[in-house]
């Protein structure tokens, strides 16, 4: 029997994996993919809880998150392209002009 706890556990693991990826990866696009993984684990949490609680709020929230993630992706990829044009790299180690 798969209960809401299983879903919560899976989404917690996915969220942790995403966080770990953001902190360890060097490529800006991979970091962005890890952020999307985090957002989708939140979506899974919302859906599972919504089903468990019998309330629609969680499902509506998921639509908002998906829409916002799409808008964020559009802006984020555009920023990465303009950075790549100037530096020929999207390695976060090359984002080093501004420090201290």
């Amino acid at each position: 029997m798969i209960t809401v706890y299983h879903y919560m556990a899976v989404s917690a693991i996915l969220f942790s994996l995403g966080t770990f990826g953001v902190l360890t990866r060097k490529n800006a696009i991979v970091i962005f993919m890890c952020i999307e993984l985090m957002l989708n684990s939140v979506n899974l949490t919302f859906i599972a809880l919504s089903r468990h609680l019998g309330s629609m709020d969680g499902q509506v929230f998921v639509f908002f998150i998906m829409t916002v993630a799409a808008a964020e992706a559009a802006v984020g990829l555009a920023l990465m392209i303009s950075f790549y044009r100037n530096r020929e790299s999207i390695d976060v180690d090359d984002i080093n002009l501004l420090k201290w």
């Binding site: 962005f32 802006v75 530096r87 501004l98």
Partner: peptide, 21 residues
């Protein structure tokens, strides 16, 4: 076309989206 501004935007974006999660 200014690397400084690119960096600012990209940093803000990556960390901002991270915190949104």
């Amino acid at each position: 076309n200014q690397v400084r501004s690119n960096e600012a935007g990209l940093k803000y974006f990556l960390l901002g989206a991270f915190s949104t999660g």
